[in-house]
Design a protein around this nucleic acid. Structure first.
Lengths: 242, 242
DNA sequence: GTGGGCTATTGGCTAGGCCACTGATCCAGT
DNA sequence: ACTGGATCAGTGGCCTAGCCAATAGCCCAC
């Protein structure tokens, strides 16, 4: 537009392809930390490792780690407390939400609906953003669940790990935070569901389908597989409450 | 190293009813910098002094200054360019750092994703559970938004009312609670979005489509209409960050 | 004029250290 | 037995000092 005009245009052109966004270390570290939080299913109030240990584990200096924590603190993901440690930030209404829903009569349908909303989207995002490491974690969780079932277990822990790994693979701090808020509620339904005979194997099959779609990088398939999986849990819930 | 005379421990105020909120150095520094920007009337693109000089002038180490810059960068106030310098990114005028802490920057995509996840499901549920009263409330919000736009307004309030009405129509306590959690975050994107010319009318059209599907009791249509609506907002967000 | 390379400037990141704060434990005095 | 204060280990806050890496501008050879 104003190319030939005397005043120097500060913005070169409307089409700004990609000036090669330099990713600074602290950003990567922040990303890793939030992934770690999601992956380990940390809930508000849970403590992060000490700065010195965390820095060493991530292979960065304490100064850089500190920058990452500042970034996470500014967006409200964590709270750093002098002399005490760093904790996952508690959202203002976390307990209120859980309690309110607990008090509600038949809360199972609500939990199912919410899981469907969040996890379907999470599966789709995971399918397009997953890294090799993400896939590996998902695979590991799957293997752990299978091993547990083989031994006659219900695979509860593996189930949780799987969903945590998928959530982490979506690389969305906000979504993983919301999942964290309702984690307790989900856990209760999960245990109920997996208590039914044959349910663990069916659940495992559902997980495999989800993992496959995520590996294939097919968001719609991942979403639909996750939806089917949640629906399956829903059936169990209905049977129970009826 | 040490001062010739040891400074006495500073007492903040003669009376401190507050639990004595610890203000970390980087926060104060960030505050000072943004104040400095405002005072000197720096505009987007203007350069800040080099880190070394700035750190010396503020009497802090480079590490601390760096933390402050990270904080300012996360809230989108400045852009730090390796080898070149730090420039003002956006006029922050009277916005206070501490308040802007919840703001966006890199979170916009996440907020969009989350909205999409929750509201799409909410729309579908609303389509199958809405009562006559729900429909009426949705209609009212729509009418209010239209009237506001006719008067040259941006329909921000009507927009909020509409989404609140739809959320209520889904009759899911959990989902509405979660929407409440991210309401603040959404509000910012909403205002940005509706600030663009012609956007309010387009938004209104989107709302109409959603309302129509909900009235018709067609969950898939409602979900897809809501998805399209959120996508539209997403486009705006992309434009902003470019 | 143009292209290539040099260099000063500036941010990125690390290492190591000391200080301040917190919470739990222990011990002395009652 | 209980209370109150001192101690101690763990943790974040902040600093100093330094080297590395990217950028922009200059100068020189062509």
């Amino acid at each position: 537009m104003t190319e030939s005009s005397p005043p120097p245009p500060r913005v070169p052109a409307p089409s700004f392809p990609a000036p090669l966004s330099r990713v600074r270390l602290y950003e990567q570290v922040a990303e890793q930390i939030s992934t770690w939080i999601a992956e380990h299913d940390l809930r508000p109030g849970d403590k992060l490792p000490p700065e010195r240990e965390l820095a060493a584990r991530l292979g960065v200096s304490r100064a850089t780690l500190s920058q990452a924590l500042v970034a996470l603190e500014v967006i409200g993901a964590v709270a750093v407390r002098h002399g005490d440690g760093t904790v996952v930030a508690k959202s203002l209404g976390a307990t209120r939400i859980v309690e309110a829903v607990r008090a509600h009569a038949n809360r199972l349908p609500e939990i199912i609906d919410t899981r469907d909303a969040l996890e379907t989207k999470i599966a789709a995002l995971a399918a397009q953003r997953r890294t090799e490491a993400d896939l590996q974690r998902i695979e590991d969780a799957l293997a752990g669940m299978e091993a547990d079932i083989e031994r006659g277990g219900r695979g509860v822990e593996g189930d949780e790990n799987f969903h945590a790994a998928v959530t982490a693979a979506a690389h969305s701090l906000l979504l993983s935070q919301l999942m964290g808020e309702i984690a307790d509620l989900i856990r209760e339904t999960r245990i109920e569901s997996l208590s039914q005979p044959e349910r663990p194997r069916a659940s495992l099959a559902g997980h495999r389908a989800i993992a496959e779609a995520i590996r294939a990088g097919d968001p719609p398939a991942a979403a639909s597989a996750m939806h089917a999986h949640v629906e399956m849990v829903s059936d169990v819930a209905v049977l129970r409450t009826t």
